[in-house]
Every structure is written in C-alpha cells, then in structure tokens.
Design a protein around this nucleic acid. Structure first.
Lengths: 224, 224
DNA sequence: ATGTGTGAATCGCTTCACAGCT
DNA sequence: AGCTGTGAAGCGATTCACACAT
C-alpha cells in the first residue's frame, strides 16, 4: 500500500518476462487499430480473442505495471494505449544507427514502421571505401571508424547491426565501446556482450528453419 | 526398447518446444564453424560455453531426437551437424515464394543465407500493375492473382509474407487456400490461420520496442 | 451483472545430479 | 576418468477461479 507515485501505476515492476514485453507490443498495435475504428472500451476477453490468448494472460500482463482497467467495464482504449506506450518507452524519441550498408541495412532505411513509433534512423555506417560518402536513400554512408564520435554527436540510443556474420562480433565490440546499451542484431551469429547490454536477435534464416522443422516433423508423423 | 529404425535416431519425438528448435538452428551454425576450423569432436560443455547455455540444456535438446554422442568422448562434429540437418529438414530443398515486392521482399531476393541452407526463392508476387512483369534482381514479379497456379507449378513449400499490415490477412487467406502450410510473416499483424498451418512472425519494430523497454526500465530503476 | 486484479494451482522448460557407457 | 543421457527437482510462466469494484 501507499505507492509513491500514483494509485494506478506501479513504479518499478519486478522482473518482467520477454514474453510479456512482446505481448505488450502486440496489444499496442491492436489498440491503435481499435482506436482508429472508433472503439472506446475493450475487455481482456476481447483483447485475448484478437491475439489468440487467454483473458487471464492479458490481465496478468497489465497487472505487472498497474491497474489500468475498470471492473465491470474493461479498459479505455486510449488510456491503455498511452499506458503501454509509457511502459515500452514509446512516448519518447529513440535515435538509431545502422551498422552495415548492405542489403538489410539499406532496406531498413525507409522502413515506415520505425519512424511511426519514435525510432529515428539517424545514420548508417560501412567499412567499404566504395560506399563511404555515397548517399543511400536519405542517408550518407559514414565510415565505421568514426562511429564513436558520430554516436556521441547524435546521441544514438540503439544500434542495428547488419554486417556479415564474420564481422559481427568485432562490430559489436565497437558498439559496446561507444557506451550504447542496446543492439538489434541481424547477423546470424550470437554476440558476446557485457552484462547490461541488451541484444535482440533477428534471424530470418532461423525462422525459416523453424518452419522447415514443423513441416518435416509433421511429415514424419504422417509417415509413421 | 526396440526402435523400428535404428538405435541412434528416435522416430518421432514428443512435442518439442520452439526454444529447442531455435537452439538446434544455433548449434547447426556453430558446428559448421567448428568443422571449418578443423574441430572433430565437441562436448556438450564446450557447445554450452559457446552458446551461453548449460551443458544439461545442450544434452537435453539432443536427447529428444536420439543418442548422438559417445560417453567419455563427446559428439563428432560432422555427424552431429548431419543429424541436426535431418531433424530440421535442412537435408532437402525447400521452395520458397515471396508475397510482396516492396522493400523487404526485394531485400530478401538475394539474401545469401537462404540458398546456402536449402531455401530456394522461386518467385515473387505483387498486386501493383506497375510492378508485375518487371524484373527485380533475378526474379520477374508475378501477379498475385496467379498465386494458386504458380505455387502448384513450382511446388512451393513456404511463403514469405512481405505486404503492408492492412493487406496481410487477406494475403494469408490466399496462401492458405493454395495448401501451403508454412508462412513467414513480416507484416506487423497477427495472422488468423487454420490449425495445422505454421506461422513465424518476423517483426523488427517489435524487437526495437523490446530494446526500448529494456533501456526504459533500466532508467526507471536507476532513477528510484 | 459484469469484468478486473490476483493468490493458488498447474504446466512446461531448465537445471541438477548421477547411473551407465566408453 | 570423462562425458553422455535422463529421471527428478526446481523454477518461471500460464491458467484457474473467485473476491471485489463499479
């Protein structure tokens, strides 16, 4: 009892699982859709139906962070969306840099979804002299050697690593040295980073392999 | 006792978790590296160290599928890699189609990692008349209306969905109708598909939001 | 009456610990 | 002696079920 901030929002929840964080991202998108459709209230039951979850899961997810609903009524879509935005840190702007101006790095530059959620792509780096200084879409490619100064200049918060697998660990070390504590890694290689640096892996080949496994195991079952 | 196939490989493991499947993908890559470095044997302890896991986890992952190791010795890298390939279905060729010739779809066409692991990009579709018939990289863009015939013609196994969020569900319905049972979804929208169709979600914005959460929650902790 | 918030029960994944091969 | 393979224990996440608020 007696929260030092407000009755509705918990100051600091205990350790929350990655699964919960991911679901919050999904609720956030769903709420945006509902609001666009003019829906003002939503119940945990309805949210669960949309996401393919149980309603208890939905309520539990929110309960880590506060009491956002009204008993007997449900959640106000507008308020809930705002609360989730605060939890996820989407109520501010994040400065993002891309490392690696290959296929993936280039494709990400004008990916609409980013800017819409507060992620601003500020710069892109490469080590290939034939690319450095050239303009790709809206950005000039910078020399990876200048990463430290450039990160500081633009107050970069998050680095997207989009270099070949062989170069990934070295580039990660460089990022860590700048003090940036969040890396989204597209290279198909696990990164060694110090405690306190958050890494998320994005690996399309691995997702395809998971699909390959599901098809294969189903076929084996049918064959037996 | 008495397996109807061989002493070393289980015919049909019980339900295996997605976590295990993902780790198998990682072991597979690590083994390829080890083999390239001339390593012939590896212990669960060594694999665990490389991946940042416990050795029990590594052994348990394999144990769902068979007895691949030699007590007192470890695993033969070459054999283990081959066993994992069979488990994941990487010992065959998969025919893949991309739906949506936008940024992401286009970037995926010549993503080297795919072909190297047996995933062959056979075709790309769009509904934009200004794109249909044009060549993008190595592929001609096909009309999405012809999906059914084309899928059948090239025996497509996996569809990569790379269309805008608003068009995702409709495109997914179309894919399901062709009989393809595996979808890799890049659209930031959950898909409704019938039981038996495997969907993997790839969502870069969501991964960034997870990073945003970790930075934000750390800052809140420090502030209190 | 309705739907939240949450302890308690349950489920499933990870880790422990050790028997059993090599 | 060394390292796998695996039941059992431990632990974290999900689901149940109901008291409580509106």
């Amino acid at each position: 009892m007696g929260n030092n901030r407000s009755d509705k929002t918990k100051q600091s929840p205990g350790k929350v699982s990655l699964s919960t964080v991911r679901r919050l991202s999904k609720y956030y998108r769903t709420l945006a859709d509902l609001i666009k459709d003019g829906v003002e209230y939503v119940s945990s039951d309805e949210l669960a139906r949309i996401e393919g979850l149980t309603s208890a899961q939905v309520r539990k997810d929110f309960s880590f962070f506060g009491n956002f609903g009204k008993r007997g009524l449900g959640y106000t879509t507008l308020d809930l969306k705002q609360n989730i935005a605060e939890i996820l840190g989407l109520d501010r702007q994040w400065n993002v840099a891309i490392i690696g101006a290959g296929n993936i790095g280039t494709a990400l530059i004008d990916y609409k979804e980013f800017a819409a959620h507060g992620f601003h792509l500020k710069m892109i780096f490469d080590n290939d002299p034939s690319k450095i200084g050239k303009k790709i879409k809206s950005l000039y490619v910078k020399d990876i050697e200048t990463m430290s100064e450039e990160f500081e200049k633009e107050k970069i918060d998050i680095a997207i690593l989009a270099v070949p697998a062989e170069a990934a660990q070295q580039a990660a070390d460089r990022i860590v040295k700048t003090g940036v504590k969040a890396i989204l890694n597209f290279a198909p290689r696990s990164l060694n980073v110090p405690e306190g640096t958050a890494v998320r892996q994005e690996n399309t080949a691995m997702e395809l392999e998971a699909l390959s496994y599901f098809i294969t195991s189903k076929q084996k079952q049918e064959a037996s």
